[in-house]
Design a protein around this nucleic acid. Structure first.
Lengths: 197, 197
DNA sequence: TTAATGTTTGACAACTTTGTTAAACAAAGA
DNA sequence: TCTTTGTTTAACAAAGTTGTCAAACATTAA
């Protein structure tokens, strides 16, 4: 009995992620994905049954990665400052590799009148917000609604990479220069969001 | 001779903008647009010749709006602080009305291997960056690469509205509450980016 | 009223994209 | 070897999307 080959299935999924999350080609067809993966398009249907199911699986896994990142960064007993550093480090690395991941999630939920958009089931955000609140009470960070603090953090991390092409055009920055700027942002964001006293 | 009717043409364009920029439905077809506008799909071709030309026109106008906003906010002799307030006010209002406008521009340029993505021809960004630099020299705002400052500003304004559905899910915020948070952000962003001494 | 011009519609053609099927192929156990 | 099971392919079918056309309709000038 032949071993069920995980190779091709994984290849298709990884290629789809590359096209959606890294290249930002949200309008890619199953043919585009198959071509990029170097396989026959029928295999997409063989492994995933339909385009929609492939999309759902990719979406689901991207959501899990997001949750996992939150969980990894915010469990354990290190001080808030260290957790924050870790979060920025991991999320920025992910966003550099996959700048359009959130964009994909957003457009996919917008696509079908956000029926099942609400069931996210994340258990780590609440403790995160609570820790932010504590840190404000301690006087370590600027006082505001912790939800604003969280939005600011993710905005500063995600948006410049998301809008890279637009920003490069407007500010006339070369690819090389832009990359250099992005590398500086981990530290810069930390300093903005957790200022030295 | 009948007057060339600008009504229907404008209606189609406005509807397209509503679907793309406000609803974030980037995969909308010409049929979707025609239905939403309540007109026959053939009219889309009558007025715009092809789907691609409609898209290009919508893209072009969105880019012009962005440039216009920069120009409006950054010409004149008011102090930097006032210009900044004005920019935040106008851009936030635009982004609340059209949260997905930039997202549309980004995905459309990603779609066709960014051939003509570079020709933005914006003349207001450079003076803007220069004014930021001046303000840093005066000690009024935190010293960093002015381009980072600009990216931070736009990130803080655009991202929370862009990712509203995602944020609402993760933080379990209702539509009503989210709207309230967004209204607070004009002031909050100004305070972050131009802190009182 | 009639002619001219612009607008709107439905029917149809062309093309693209998705999904299905049967057959060929490959690997491994009996 | 032969059978079984899983994998890959090409051909085809179905659906969706875009684009064209001729005819109907509306408005205004002559």
């Amino acid at each position: 009995m032949p071993i069920k080959d995980k190779g091709t299935e994984q290849l298709i999924k990884d290629t789809a992620k590359k096209i959606f999350f890294a290249d930002g080609k949200l309008h890619a067809t199953t043919q585009d994905i198959a071509d990029a993966a170097g396989v026959n398009r029928t295999l997409v249907h063989y492994y995933f049954r339909s385009r929609k199911l492939l999309f759902e699986q990719v979406t689901e896994e991207a959501m899990n990665e997001l949750r996992q990142m939150m969980s990894d960064a915010f469990t354990g007993k290190q001080p808030f400052k260290e957790k924050l550093k870790k979060l920025i480090n991991v999320f920025m690395d992910q966003t550099i590799a996959y700048p359009y991941r959130e964009l994909f999630l957003i457009t996919e939920t917008n696509r079908y009148n956000q029926e099942h958009a609400d069931q996210v089931h994340d258990t780590h955000t609440k403790p995160f917000l609570a820790e932010i609140k504590e840190e404000m009470d301690k006087g370590n960070i600027q006082v505001m609604d912790p939800r604003h603090y969280m939005m600011n953090l993710f905005a500063l991390m995600a948006y410049p990479l998301l809008s890279a092409n637009l920003s490069k055009s407007f500010m006339k920055i070369s690819d090389h220069e832009y990359h250099k700027l992005m590398k500086q942002r981990k530290q810069l964001i930390f300093d903005m969001i957790y200022p030295a006293k």
